[in-house]
Amino acid sequence: MFVIKNYVTTGGTVACALAIGYLMQNGSPAQSDGAQAPVTVAAANQSSVIAGLEGIVLTSSPPAADATTDIKASRSALQPSRSAPSDQTNCALSARAKAIPGAAARLTVKAPCHGNERIEIHHSGLTVTQRTDKNGALDLTIPALSEYAIFLISVDDQTGTVATTHIPDLANYNRIALQWQGETDLQIHALEFGASYGTAGHVSSDPDAKGAGKVVHLGQQAFGDAQNIEIYSFPAGETSQAGSIELTVEAEVTEANCGRDLAVQSLELRGDRRLRSRDLTLPMPDCTQAGDFLVLNNLLQDLTIAAN
């Protein structure tokens, strides 16, 4: 059985900015509304499954000079001392976010003294682990969950930075996200307007999937405790179709997760534009079922799309 708690994430840009220091240490708080929902779990063999902050860079406007001085002065004592490599004279961590079509943000990060290192991106309750390249750079596209999107970027020595951007077309999209930690792979499958598995309208992270929506998978398998996310997006404001989109989630039972409880969180942005969060506990089957898949038929509520 799943243990489910429902949340509603609210708050404005100013409140998010003021809470940056707290979020970097403690994560995003949420209030429970006490609702619960049942979840049906079916097991199937794989072959039988159908088919603090060192520098802040804001993309809108920079902080006032006196505020910047105060921030750096108050936080410099909290940061561990680092010696720049002989070929690096500037270790400043910086990031920029730019809105791109599809209600997404292109995030570029420069961390010249953190080549081939773990880096985490936080956005509207989501956290995803990535890895910089040998030069300490990262270029990542993330589907946004808020119109005025704030991205918090942190590295292992607890330094960090912030990037923001405006996502003007977010209101045109419904978005369903799952996040979890570890080696388990969760897969969102969307059957759009009566589609069947393997046909047009069956959308997943498979690059060959064809449909109006899109599933993006982000994570870093190089780290066993990485934060992973999978996001399904449907352009509800840009389609003339109406009807239902069936949502299912699949999870493979592996030696790494069998017999354990898997903590999962969903974040849903539907037609009322309220970002809702649910915490779920998924008991994985014992290790005799390794190699099988769980098919979660009602982990996520189906989407209902109205005609435009």
Score class of each variant (00 low, 15 high):
L247C: 06
V203Q: 09
A171I: 08
R276Q: 15
L300Y: 03
I71M: 06
G243W: 08
V128A: 10
S244D: 13
N172E: 08
T13F: 14
I188G: 09
L269W: 00
S48K: 12
A19S: 12
Q187H: 07
G34M: 03
H189F: 06
D87T: 10
N297W: 03
F2W: 05
F2Q: 05
D185V: 13
S28W: 13
L267Q: 11
H114N: 10
G12N: 13
A64Q: 13
E250H: 11
P85C: 01
A236M: 05
L262I: 01
L294G: 04
N228C: 12
T184W: 07
P85H: 03
Y232N: 10
L126S: 10
T254M: 14
P80A: 11
E246L: 13
A290S: 09
G213P: 02
N298D: 12
L23A: 01
I176A: 14
T159I: 11
L140T: 05
D261M: 10
S154H: 07
P85L: 08
L58Y: 06
I305F: 07
T89N: 15
A242S: 15
I100P: 01
T9H: 13
L140F: 02
G271W: 01
T59A: 15
P62I: 06
G198D: 09
A42H: 06
A200T: 11
P168D: 08
S277K: 14
T254W: 06
S76P: 03
V41R: 03
L170D: 06
V249N: 07
R82T: 08
A306M: 14
L140S: 05
G201V: 04
T9V: 15
I231D: 08
A111I: 03
S277D: 15
A307Y: 06
D292W: 07
L280K: 01
S74N: 14
V109E: 04
D66K: 00
T59W: 00
I167W: 01
S76M: 12
T288G: 05
L280C: 12
T108A: 13
S61L: 14
V155F: 00
D185N: 07
V155K: 02
I121L: 10
A73G: 12
T164W: 04
Q187F: 09
A51N: 14
D185Y: 07
L282F: 02
R260W: 01
R82K: 09
C16T: 14
I153K: 00
H114R: 10
D272V: 07
A111D: 04
A190Y: 01
A19C: 08
S277G: 15
S196I: 06
A200D: 11
V162H: 02
I4D: 08
I119P: 02
I71N: 05
V39W: 00
A209I: 06
T89E: 13
N228A: 09
L140C: 04
T184Q: 06
F193P: 07
K5D: 15
D87N: 12
S154G: 15
L303F: 07
A163W: 00
I150L: 11
V162R: 01
D261Q: 10
L280R: 00
L170W: 03
V39G: 03
S76A: 15
N174E: 11
E117G: 00
H189A: 14
S47N: 13
R278S: 15
